[in-house]
Design a protein around this nucleic acid. Structure first.
Lengths: 156, 156
DNA sequence: TAAACTCGTCAACATGGTTGTCGAAACAGT
DNA sequence: ACTGTTTCGACAACCATGTTGACGAGTTTA
């Protein structure tokens, strides 16, 4: 029995490196496809806004940050042309954040790129191995961290 | 053919969730063991300083950030008592950053906690499955260093 | 010796987060 | 119908972590 034990600190580094690899490739692709200014945090925020739109408070709740932080990220996304704020006719306090066509475009492009990257990983390590990797991760991460399964990601 | 394909965007979320799970548990443990003020970015920086010490420029290079950013992180670590700056007798420009005993303590505690968490994962998904997960990740991540230059996006 | 490089630091700024506060609007209970 | 509570978005101050650009001082090199 070889006992080739990996030091424990390597595991988080590998997980982080895997995440970074995918996200960096995604944003390199997006930059080439006409979205050079989008940043990872923007992607998460757009996903939280979703196809149906949401208020800043709701976005904050979905992302697990304060409504003020969500408001500031929204400011940047408005500035970049990815979302817009619309007054809610039924509730004078609310302002609905809605994806612009450009926002929808970046989300649908992201979905395609994610599929490509997923397929690339499958080609590198094997379809079965990738499925095993995913199911192993599902088993060890707490399930509550996953409200980000936004339908708007492929949807359109 | 079942084709129960996971959507591509789930993979990075799983990787990120796995990383976050480990790092959050690490810091909860460290807080209980007398290091409540240490943050993930500090851990990476202390690791880059290492037992032999390093200059700010060298730490920046190891972490993939500017020397100015490394200097600022060093300021915070000095403030928290984890490192100290020592003038280099041989080179008047340099100031060696060295771990204090407290800095060594947090690194060795972290190593133990990482081993515990690794063993926990092994118990949950199986030793073999964990080894497969690690070797799959090694196959898909580029072998060069890890860049940590995106502030704020995993709670650092 | 003069030029070029390297070191640490200062300054200004961007990003993404936090708390606290506050007015306006909506809601709930008497 | 009035009143107290809650929620919404916004403002302000602040923190942590990054970035460039500049610069004096020390070291290396041609």
């Amino acid at each position: 029995m070889p006992e080739s034990t990996t030091p424990g600190f390597v595991l988080p580094l590998l997980l982080f490196a895997g995440f970074r690899t995918i996200i960096d490739r995604l944003h390199a692709e997006l930059a080439e496809q006409g979205h050079p200014d989008i940043r990872p945090a923007h992607g998460f925020a757009l996903q939280a806004v979703g196809i149906d739109g949401a208020t800043a408070s709701e976005v904050g709740r979905r992302l697990g940050v304060s409504k003020q932080a969500a408001g500031k990220t929204t400011d940047r996304l408005v500035n970049l042309g990815y979302v817009e704020r619309v007054d809610d006719a039924e509730d004078g306090r609310r302002k609905l954040i809605r994806l612009t066509p450009r926002g929808v475009d970046v989300l649908s492009r992201s979905a395609l790129i994610f599929e490509d990257l997923h397929a690339e990983w499958a080609a590198t390590i094997g379809v079965r191995q990738l499925a095993d990797l995913e199911s192993a991760l599902r088993a060890v991460v707490p399930t509550d961290g996953f409200r980000l399964d936004v339908p708007g990601w492929f949807g359109i």
